[in-house]
Design a protein around this nucleic acid. Structure first.
Lengths: 214, 214
DNA sequence: CAGTTTTATGACCGGCAAGTCATGAACCTG
DNA sequence: CAGGTTCATGACTTGCCGGTCATAAAACTG
């Protein structure tokens, strides 16, 4: 075995995995899991269908693999984001920036992510259990940032998990509108999301102010 | 023909349509469009598969029928909501109330709606064109409310369509978390959504205030 | 109640796509 | 280059499900 620790075989295997996952990502993004066919994925990767089974054991596994590799990356970036910056506002901004950047850099994966999300509340979808947990993890990364902000008096009191979810929603859907081309108005997404989340829609100094939600 | 204008046949037809749509709604909610089978729908309606084809011409048509009947109802309620109330805050509250009420009253349909939404950004999904328009209609109902609020100085300036979408997102996802049981904290959903949308997360009187977005 | 029409049924057909495997190509290795 | 080993292929198998239709049950009619 070479010093690098990788045999020729390892390199090929790694290379094929990447090829396949890349093709799969595109096809899943276009068609969704059910409508995607292994023939199309194989074709796009320049391979025959049988070859896919040399590297993965099922369509399901290919899908999981795409999701897992990309989500790990996203979570890593989020961890960096939440731990840099001193005020709540700064950290929130970092989170927004990190996610927008990540998803903008990989539109195809984003489409898969969004679709998968939409299936989270179908009742008989065992496969989604894992995905639901991954989503919860992201929320649990954001919630403490908000909670700390509340304790410091930078944010008003509200349920931190619910608020964290709201922020992620807002991001997800702003991204969706952008990608679907429904966002006619030219907007700085980062600024828009931050302002809306931070200050809501009310005019500053208006008559009605938001309440504390204990 | 009887005075009522309905023959016995009309009544039976109407009745079967309802039976089938009700069963279909449940099954689509559990499985999603692709995974739902006509056998299961027929079974749940107490009919045989062939019978479905006496009343509908395809699986697709059954699905469209479910969507269309429910969405008409929702749009009707939204129209009432946006036109009652004098201040922007009141109207926003009415919109929130109307949607939460509607979706709470029909959980199964809500799941279908949410899933369908998640597929909106798959690229090759011709069938969704119509659905996308229906969604846009809802947004176009809300946007003027916000715009008017801005003109009266009740809301700060921001792109009205983008803000309207954000409100609908927030509602959709708050509802999702509630239905998935991820919302641990006991929260008054209506109040929570309103406060967040209206005032954001920032503590009143904090140092950083939201900017106007022209 | 016989005859006719309407409504319901479920076995069956056909197409599709996941997954398999016998065959063959490419590539080592001595 | 012979013999063996790894990698790639795509025709084939298999199960599934939307849609059909010959048959039967129910309802209506006179």
């Amino acid at each position: 075995m070479p010093v690098s620790g990788k045999t020729r075989k390892d390199v090929l295997t790694e290379f094929r995995h990447q090829e396949i996952l890349e093709a799969a990502c595109q096809v899943f993004a276009e068609r969704g899991f059910r409508e995607a066919t292994l023939d199309e994925i194989a074709g796009k990767a320049g391979l025959a269908k049988g070859t896919l089974y040399l590297y993965f054991s099922s369509k399901e596994e290919i899908f999981q693999s795409v999701m897992y590799s990309r989500l790990s990356e996203l979570m890593a970036r989020m961890r960096t984001a939440v731990s840099s910056g001193s005020t709540a506002a700064e950290r929130i901004r970092n989170i927004i920036k990190a996610r927008l950047e990540f998803f903008r850099s990989d539109e195809a994966f984003w489409r898969i992510y969004y679709t998968e999300f939409g299936q989270l509340c179908q009742q008989r979808h065992v496969k989604d259990e894992r995905f639901r947990e991954l989503f919860l993890q992201a929320t649990q990364l954001v919630a403490p940032v908000l909670q700390e902000g509340m304790e410091r008096g930078e944010l008003r009191r509200m349920p931190p998990m619910a608020a964290a979810m709201a922020l992620l929603d807002l991001l997800r859907n702003t991204m969706a509108l952008y990608l679907m081309g429904m966002q006619k108005e030219e907007v700085d997404l980062e600024q828009f999301v931050f302002d809306l989340f931070w200050g809501g829609v009310a005019a500053p100094g208006g008559s009605q102010t938001a309440r504390e939600i204990p």
